[in-house]
Design a protein around this nucleic acid. Structure first.
Length: 286
DNA sequence: GTTTGATGTCGAC
DNA sequence: TCGACCTCAAACG
């Protein structure tokens, strides 16, 4: 369920874990036994993210990259010894752990991780930390060609510094689809999900049903910038919060259909766009 | 105890 | 557009 900011957060977590040396890999659930065996006793050399895809490059005889997509209900759970900076949990279900203020298991003295649950697809065990993956949409070992194939169908990621808005804007101006569909299409822009779509379209005053090609270049540029700044905020805080005043709630419109708009008081609406519930204010978003 | 639904994506009709 | 994927807390009874 996580959007792109969570995956970049995961890459940062694995960057910490990679400092702990080689990893023992296993598949307690048994559905990734071969892959785990190939990674066992190897070191993570480069963890990185693009959109909602996590890539962990391992130093094994043949260069191998673990590709993980959490999908709708995947998650990583971490346990770590004292002094190791890791979140407790990233992914579904929504619960404490992904947030910096939440407590997560720290072990003083001897590090003794809890045994993996039945549904753990992959456990990566380091000297004083453990990462458990469950419920991923995808968990596979790729060579470089396989990685390229995935990147080829992903658009620019606002959280990747080297990406610019150019491709996103060019393609949005050519498609016949609505902007609410375009923002959710990972080939147009990689990373945003249903919350950032609803929230940033609101913040930019764009109706999700508007034809993307009719949105001005200037406003598409503003949308890209807003997605980037809000996702950076989520990356930093470990929590999606797009409201200016969080004390009244984290969201402007997401999951607020039937309630008054926080800006103008009009009733927030809801409609399925690109297969997902979309929320917008009929007065603020034209 | 059972149903629902979720910050996702693909592939078959 | 719809179901499958595969997980689990929350909502419902």
């Amino acid at each position: 369920m996580p959007e792109g900011h969570s995956i970049h957060r995961l890459a940062a977590a694995f960057s910490e874990l990679s400092k702990l040396g080689i990893a023992r890999a296993s598949s307690p659930q048994g559905r990734f036994t071969e892959g785990a065996a190939a990674l066992d006793n190897a070191k993570i050399t480069r963890p990185w993210a693009w959109g909602k895809h996590l890539f962990l490059e391992f130093e094994v005889p043949q260069p191998a990259t673990l590709h993980v997509h959490l999908g709708l209900y995947g998650s990583w759970k971490f346990q770590a010894g004292e002094g190791i900076a890791l979140p407790g949990h990233i992914g579904a279900p929504r619960m404490p752990g992904e947030h910096p203020g939440d407590t997560y298991k720290h072990f003083s003295g001897q590090f003794q991780p809890a045994p993996p649950g039945e549904n753990v697809r992959l456990r990566l065990e380091f000297s004083r930390a453990v990462a458990d993956l469950s419920g991923p949409n995808q968990c596979e070992l790729l060579d470089n060609a396989g990685v390229e194939k995935i990147l080829a169908r992903l658009g620019p990621d606002p959280l990747v510094d080297s990406c610019s808005s150019q491709d996103f804007i060019d393609r949005a101006r050519k498609t016949s689809r609505r902007i609410g569909e375009v923002v959710m299409d990972q080939s147009f822009i990689a990373g945003p999900g249903n919350i950032y779509r609803a929230e940033c379209l609101f913040r930019c005053g764009i109706n999700p049903n508007r034809q993307a090609a009719k949105v001005s270049v200037k406003r598409l540029q503003a949308l890209w910038e807003d997605l980037r700044s809000q996702m950076r905020r989520g990356l930093k805080e470990g929590l999606i919060c797009t409201a200016d005043d969080p004390s009244q709630g984290r969201f402007w419109v997401y999951q607020r259909s039937g309630e008054p708009c926080r800006r103008c008081g009009a009733i927030v609406r809801e409609q399925i766009v690109a297969g997902r519930r979309s929320y917008w204010c009929p007065k603020c978003q034209k």
